[in-house]
Design a protein around this nucleic acid. Structure first.
Lengths: 124, 124
DNA sequence: AAGCCTGTTATAGAATCAATATAACAAAAA
DNA sequence: TTTTTGTTATATTGATTCTATAACAGGCTT
């Protein structure tokens, strides 16, 4: 899986990295059991520091997307039943939809966008 | 309009403030032409620094939710045709829905949540 | 056994951001 | 005139982000 980083973005590098990997899982480019590159490898291939990658992996571990095996490195392992995430999602959506509503983006448009994105993650 | 701040949140105070005001506009608690409290007033009533409020207002001005009138202070004034926001929304939704997809939250559940939130903002 | 590659940890520095604290200014309102 | 408005400048504190070395133990390869 190709991981791209935008150095002009305001988003922290380790957050961009985390997001890319989560999106990789959603789009099935990364599957349960797949091994991520070592922190040193990935850091070098992107051109950033080892610790920045390590922080991304640590966050992914805490959030339940990855487990770390001393032998194999960081392995995709998804906690599927985390209800905290639903409340978190509600809060995030409240802000996003408030903005959308102010900009006269209709509910239909949002639904269409949701479908489009969900489609790209392989339906369900 | 009552503005509440969570001092335990990781979100910056000025971002929380901005979000509250945008949500206030969406829910029609704040309407075009309404005057926001002065930076000093609001700062005192919440118990934070004047500059933190000022930063929130400055961001709201840049994002096109508020205009500042020397006479009246900060006034709600919404730029309704900003297409940058649609692309921004797409990027934010991509991350949120990736997480949702990983947690087995179905597309239907997301649609229902969208409706619920949009409902609270008065339909459309 | 020796060397290499894992993740992990510690420490330190630079740059930026968040929040606070004073202070002052011009314009408008009381 | 005095108060209140937004605006601007400056400074300090603390946290965050990213980088840089360095070292360690566990596992793998040769």
């Amino acid at each position: 899986m190709l991981i791209e980083i935008d150095f002009n973005s305001e988003e922290a590098l380790y957050i961009q990295l985390r997001n890319r990997i989560i999106m990789g899982i959603a789009s099935n480019e990364l599957r349960e059991g797949d091994v991520l590159p070592s922190v040193r490898q990935l850091a070098e291939s992107i051109g950033i520091n080892m610790h920045t990658v390590n922080k991304a992996y640590t966050v992914l571990k805490q959030e339940g997307f990855v487990k770390v095996d001393r032998r194999r490195g960081a392995v995709i392992a998804i906690d599927e039943g985390r209800l905290e995430d639903l409340e978190e999602m509600r809060k995030e959506l409240q802000v996003i939809l408030a903005k959308a509503s102010c900009r006269n983006i209709s509910r239909q448009e949002v639904h269409a966008l949701i479908d489009e994105i969900y489609e790209s993650y392989g339906g369900v």
